[in-house]
Simulated scan of single mutants.
Amino acid sequence: MLRVGEQVRHALSEVLSRGDVHDEALSSTPISVTEVRMSPDLRHATVFVKPLLGGDEEAILTALKRNVRYLRGEVSRRVNMKYSASLKFRADESFDEGGHIDSLLRTAKVARDLEGREED
């Protein structure tokens, strides 16, 4: 599942970076495909994307859903699988969560707790 997910991720990244999709929302904003999770039967793929340079996530997700048939066809041409996996696009929230955790770790209370442990 992991190997196929990575192959699908690379195929989608290549299609989106080359600008093969003729959609204004997708061609105007660079998009990072951060992860692809495949179902155990390899028929369904959840694709996590993040628009770069502060792009509008909702507009990008809408454009990807509009062009899902084309993207599915391109993935099936580039990745040799028995079935063409259906694609479901989701916004990747892991960067936001990481930033939130980082900001929590930089608070004064955490710094004070860490300083107290070093004295022990």
Rank of each mutant, 00 (worst) to 15 (best):
D92M: 03
H22R: 10
V36C: 04
R66Q: 10
G73S: 08
P30N: 04
S84G: 14
P51Y: 06
D120N: 13
Q7K: 02
S32N: 10
L104K: 05
G98W: 10
G19Y: 06
R69Q: 14
A59D: 12
A85L: 06
L104D: 06
E74N: 02
E115H: 05
D56M: 07
P40M: 02
S27E: 10
V68M: 08
I60G: 00
D120R: 12
R18M: 15
S76N: 06
H44N: 12
S76M: 05
T107Y: 15
R69I: 09
L87C: 08
S86K: 09
F89G: 00
K88D: 14
V47Q: 05
S86V: 05
E74K: 12
E74P: 01
R106C: 14
H22E: 13
L16Y: 03
R72I: 08
S27H: 07
A108P: 13
G54C: 09
L2D: 15
R9H: 01
I31E: 00
M1Y: 13
S27C: 08
V36I: 07
A59M: 13
D41N: 04
L71V: 04
A59V: 06
F48G: 00
R90M: 11
S39L: 12
L104S: 11
D120M: 14
R66C: 04
R37C: 03
D113H: 09
K65P: 00
S27R: 11
V110A: 12
R69P: 00
K82C: 01
E93I: 03
A45G: 05
T29W: 04
L52Y: 03
I101H: 05
K88P: 00
R78K: 09
N80I: 06
E74D: 09
L104G: 04
H22M: 09
A108F: 09
A25Y: 14
L16W: 01
L71S: 02
K50I: 05
L26E: 00
T46G: 08
A91D: 06
P51H: 12
G98M: 07
R78I: 06
S28T: 09
D120G: 15
H10D: 02
A85F: 12
K65H: 11
K109Y: 10
E58K: 03
N80M: 03
T62W: 09
R66G: 01
E35F: 07
R43L: 06
H10E: 04
S84F: 10
P40Y: 06
H22D: 11
A59I: 09
A108I: 12
K88C: 07
R106P: 04
L104C: 02
M81Q: 13
V47H: 00
D113L: 11
A111E: 10
D56A: 08
L53D: 09
L71P: 00
G116I: 13
